[in-house]
Amino acid sequence: MSRSTPIIVPEMSILNPARLIDHTLLKPQTTLKQIEQLCEEAVEWGFAAVCVPPAFVERAVACLYGSETAVASVVGFPCGYDSTTSKVRQTEELGSLGCTEIDMVISIGLALSGEFARVEDEIAQIVLASAGAKVKVIIECCYLDRLQKIALTDAVVRAGAAYVKTSTGFGPSGAKVEDVHLLAETAQGRIGVKAAGGIKSLNDLRLMSVAGASRIGTSSGVEIMRQWVASL
């Protein structure tokens, strides 16, 4: 999505964009105090989920106890090249700590090698290990061509995950409208699409939603909500 030429979409009937947002903080320098603030903001605004590093899952679960905000964390993040066994163990541990949503990174190198069956098998093992938690599969679109994105979205569907996700936010580029549209067009409603990476404004969120995203990963959730309130 170009920053030099902003695209403005017509006003949408987003009654409350908060329910689209995964309020995210995954920087390596993240502190416990910042996680607590993240959770307070999530409850205040009613975000769908917080997405936090594995080391902070227990505190996030405690902070959000009794709220409607889910706790998500990451597996194989951000590079995706952990072994499948390691990813399965990570998933099981996060579930035992109270995560109800898992954002996993595929083995990008295997995907680029055309080993889609192996990628699909890994996703299926993560889904099984998640014990009912929603699994969002990050395919890191910036490294893929159109046919690879289509093949991987179909693999995510067959493996039983809940969402295909555009990006980690740590790659060369984040979510792009055209990628979200392609993933949504391929998924055909069988799974959701999560857009993440570089989404910083209400207009960004609207663009991604129009393109087909049903979840938005962003560290700018509070600013987006303030923009939404100001637009009412």
Score class of each variant (00 low, 15 high):
121 D>S: 10
90 Q>F: 06
4 S>F: 15
218 T>K: 00
18 A>T: 00
158 R>H: 12
204 D>H: 09
65 Y>R: 14
2 S>F: 11
161 A>M: 06
28 P>H: 13
104 M>C: 10
77 F>Y: 13
216 I>L: 01
57 V>F: 02
153 T>D: 07
91 T>K: 03
162 A>T: 06
210 V>Q: 07
95 G>L: 12
34 Q>N: 06
101 E>M: 05
69 T>N: 01
79 C>Y: 15
35 I>C: 03
173 S>R: 13
203 N>Y: 05
37 Q>L: 13
86 S>N: 11
103 D>I: 04
43 V>N: 07
141 C>D: 12
187 A>G: 01
154 D>T: 08
122 E>T: 09
1 M>N: 13
43 V>A: 14
39 C>E: 00
118 R>K: 15
26 L>Y: 02
22 D>R: 04
95 G>E: 04
43 V>T: 05
3 R>Y: 06
216 I>H: 01
32 L>R: 13
131 A>Y: 12
106 I>T: 00
3 R>C: 03
102 I>K: 00
169 G>T: 05
7 I>R: 15
94 L>V: 03
158 R>C: 05
113 S>Y: 00
79 C>H: 14
172 P>I: 14
105 V>G: 09
56 F>A: 02
217 G>F: 02
127 V>K: 05
184 A>T: 06
108 I>N: 00
92 E>D: 07
102 I>T: 05
99 C>M: 04
156 V>F: 09
42 A>K: 07
53 P>G: 14
133 A>Q: 11
124 A>V: 06
122 E>W: 15
182 L>Q: 09
48 A>K: 14
68 E>G: 08
164 V>M: 12
199 I>R: 04
214 S>Y: 02
84 T>G: 08
104 M>I: 11
45 W>E: 10
107 S>E: 15
30 T>S: 13
105 V>Q: 11
187 A>D: 04
185 E>T: 13
169 G>C: 07
5 T>W: 12
2 S>Q: 13
183 L>G: 01
186 T>A: 14
